[in-house]
């Protein structure tokens, strides 16, 4: 769900790319490369609404509800740190001046993404094409590889459908790993300072989740351990009316994501939502992050 960027769809009727059951192993074999995928906002909010009402009904107190919702987000946040750090290491530049033939790599990645979205049979074809390309590019010039690849593309696909599925699985996994990792010259270092990790949330995490950076990142002037991330119009809770006393609590999901993200980065904290409406933005929301004391102590030691 949050694996995809949230973008406003054209209409309620926008369909989500259908999942193909014949590609159940796609989850593991698909490249970790960032692909721009849109999810219908309607579908997303309907799902979120069901999640909220399920939790709301199964909880006896408001605190319990907030805790549960936050836990949902937390498990996503924990994973996101890993994924986004990995992706941030993959600078687009590395594709151009990476060691092996540049044209082949870019060409390969485009085919991969194209194919995975087109037909079911290509699931088997993808890896084969990549490996094929690599062997070719070793022997021939990259230009030639490009030409032959396109022609061999369809032929390979036909050919592969006759093969047994499992035959290629291992090979494919290995190839994909290599194909991505090869272009990471240097892993991004984990953020160790409060400000750095918050910047990462403000920029990268927010762009990943909501397709824009957060609207503001503020440090509290009163308390040293408090920071605020501000969202002028929260996407997930935009349809939930404010006249309900439970409405603010619905934001604990995103709080949970932030919390999980910071926790796995080694910054234990608590995150709470607060409304702070302005003239222009009625729904303006502040995520208040309160770091544990140990984080501040560590920060002081490093300085």
């Amino acid at each position: 769900m949050t694996q995809k960027t949230l973008i406003t769809p054209a209409e309620n009727s926008t369909t989500i790319t259908q999942m193909d059951t014949s590609r159940s192993s796609r989850l593991y074999t698909e490249s970790l490369m960032f692909k721009k995928d849109n999810v219908s906002l309607s579908a997303m909010t309907f799902l979120y609404q069901e999640m909220i009402s399920y939790l709301h009904q199964s909880s006896t107190t408001m605190a319990e509800f907030e805790k549960k919702l936050s836990n949902y987000g937390e498990s996503i946040g924990l994973r996101l740190l890993e994924l986004l750090n990995f992706r941030a290491s993959l600078s687009p530049k590395s594709f151009i001046d990476s060691s092996s033939s540049a044209t082949t790599t870019t060409a390969t990645t485009t085919t991969t993404s194209n194919i995975t979205t087109t037909s079911a049979t290509t699931g088997t074809g993808t890896a084969k094409i990549i490996s094929e390309n690599r062997t070719r590019s070793k022997s021939t010039t990259s230009k030639l590889a490009n030409d032959t690849r396109t022609s061999s593309n369809s032929a390979l696909r036909d050919h592969n459908t006759h093969h047994h599925h499992h035959h290629h699985t291992l090979e494919r996994e290995k190839n994909l790993d290599v194909s991505l990792c090869k272009y990471i010259t240097k892993m991004r270092r984990r953020d160790l300072k409060i400000l750095d990790i918050l910047q990462f949330i403000h920029g990268t995490l927010w762009s990943y989740l909501f397709n824009h950076v957060s609207d503001d990142l503020v440090k509290s002037s009163e308390r040293a351990n408090e920071y605020m991330i501000i969202d002028n119009s929260p996407v997930l809770t935009q349809f939930i009316p404010n006249n309900n006393n439970a409405s603010l609590s619905c934001n604990y999901f995103v709080c949970g994501i932030i919390k999980g993200f910071l926790l796995s980065a080694g910054f234990p904290c608590s995150v709470n939502p607060h409304t702070m409406s302005t003239d222009e933005f009625d729904e303006r929301l502040v995520y208040l992050i309160q770091f544990d004391q140990e984080v501040l102590e560590r920060e002081a030691l490093r300085a």
Partner: peptide, 8 residues
């Protein structure tokens, strides 16, 4: 939007 997507 504002009625059908309201969880409450």
């Amino acid at each position: 939007d504002y009625v059908m997507k309201d969880p409450f």
